[in-house]
Design a protein around this nucleic acid. Structure first.
Lengths: 249, 249
DNA sequence: CGTGAGTTTGAGTGCGCTCAAGCTTAGTGG
DNA sequence: CCACTAAGCTTGAGCGCACTCAAACTCACG
């Protein structure tokens, strides 16, 4: 693989990368990008395919380029809790640790941009723009994890469902700028089972609470995966968070 | 305040600092320490005193020098969830954010070593040894938060109590090297209410489960705050984690 | 002693779980 | 074109764990 001089328009060139400005390499200068270019390799996973199991050796770290992966832990008796979601530009793996702490599974078709862990760790020590960006991203994930702890520890089933819908609706808003939050539709890309694993509920409870929110007019259902929110502030009230804006910028 | 040349034995000099080798400044060289020395100021809080409220401006970041602080969120109706515990050497505050995302409260008498946020952010950009150390610490906290999500989402009340006791016992072991985990005693430094807020339970349930573990011989109680664990592996079984070792190194 | 914070214990309730059946939808092959 | 299947989802009945409300106990401190 060439260190530099990829053909213009090469879809695997860093300069054409869809996550160029948001991933761990976001702050890199072109000379730093060249080093990464020489280290990286792509890998693709099928939906449902495991990426790593907790306890497995982790010879690589990676950035998610396309698709969604879930981070979860399964207890011996089968109870499962999702603890994170990896979206495009998110970082997978942990510098300084050789074993995975959690299971990672491709939720959709997934493409990642991999680096061998040891060389990447070296690079972190010599390239402040990478370690600073990784710090920013890790701090964001920590805040998100703590918000989720509040949900898991203290919210009712109805509030949990509403909170998840708020998050999904927010992402929809951020992807489609200019849509005023009056009436809003979006797809649930995940199964009831994934929702249950994420929220610390059973699929039956998820189903019942979605039905209840529909009967109360908080949401409307097209197909089972198509949600319409007629009044976004009503949904936010149901989520149980402080009403006046987010703590998270 | 002198930039350098503190008197030898000065208890506030970085070289005498009890968290010198573990805090955000752990990797600093002596010239970097001098810069920090000129920026820092100590502040002490009484037990129960708030450090910041969620939403407050955060003009400082800080390292915990002595004592314990809790990070928590309180919902409008009073439900509270603790989302982190700050022990000596832990870092308080978030570079790049001007508003606190969570409440921070001194659990015991608390001494912190503060830096103004803006100058500290500048320092992060120019001092890789600090940003790398902060990255390590943040990654550790993220893993801890995710472990805690499993506890909050999927564990029973008995497993939650046992898990907390395992964590506290582990810390006791790490502080007293050489103590073989046969029989082990330690103090609960926190009230039942703090345990409940941490575990996502009520104080009554905490109390009942501690009683149940005592009746089943898993733990013994001296005073209400003094715990003895006759068989550590028995306690670990009760915690419901994978039996064969930790994922966390 | 009296006070108050922290803790324990008891009685009863209800939310979310378990177990079980039925429904919907999409895909497959006769 | 219509079984047939399987995965995903919904609905129902009943139960149990953890919560709520209430009272009593412990212990440090004035």
């Amino acid at each position: 693989m060439p260190i530099s001089g990829r053909p213009a328009g090469d879809p695997q060139a860093c300069e054409n990368c869809p996550i160029r400005h948001r991933a761990v390499c976001a702050h890199c200068e072109s000379d730093e990008l060249e080093v990464l270019e020489g280290m990286k390799s792509y890998k693709t996973y099928a939906p449902g395919e495991p990426v790593v199991w907790a306890g497995d050796p982790m010879p690589h770290v990676a950035s998610v380029v396309n698709g969604v992966a879930s981070i979860s832990r399964t207890m011996e008796d089968g109870r499962r809790q999702m603890v994170g979601l990896l979206l495009p530009s998110d970082f997978l793996g942990r510098p300084g640790r050789s074993q995975a702490a959690f299971d990672v599974t491709a939720a959709t078709e997934l493409t990642v941009c991999r680096f061998e862990r040891k060389p990447f760790e070296k690079l972190l020590e010599t390239t402040p723009s990478i370690s600073r960006r990784l710090l920013e991203m890790t701090l964001d994930e920590l805040d998100a994890a703590r918000e989720w702890m509040v949900l898991l520890g203290r919210k009712t089933a109805r509030e949990k469902i509403a909170s998840l819908l708020v998050i999904l609706a927010r992402r929809e808003i951020s992807l489609r700028p200019g849509v005023v939050p009056g009436r809003l539709s979006f797809d649930l890309m995940i199964t009831r089972e994934a929702m249950a694993d994420y929220l610390g509920l059973t699929i039956e409870t998820v189903s019942r609470q979605i039905t209840a929110l529909r009967k109360d007019g908080v949401i409307e259902l097209g197909t089972k995966r198509q949600i319409t929110v007629p009044d976004f502030s009503r949904l936010m009230d149901e989520a149980g968070d402080d009403s006046d804006g987010d703590h998270i910028a």
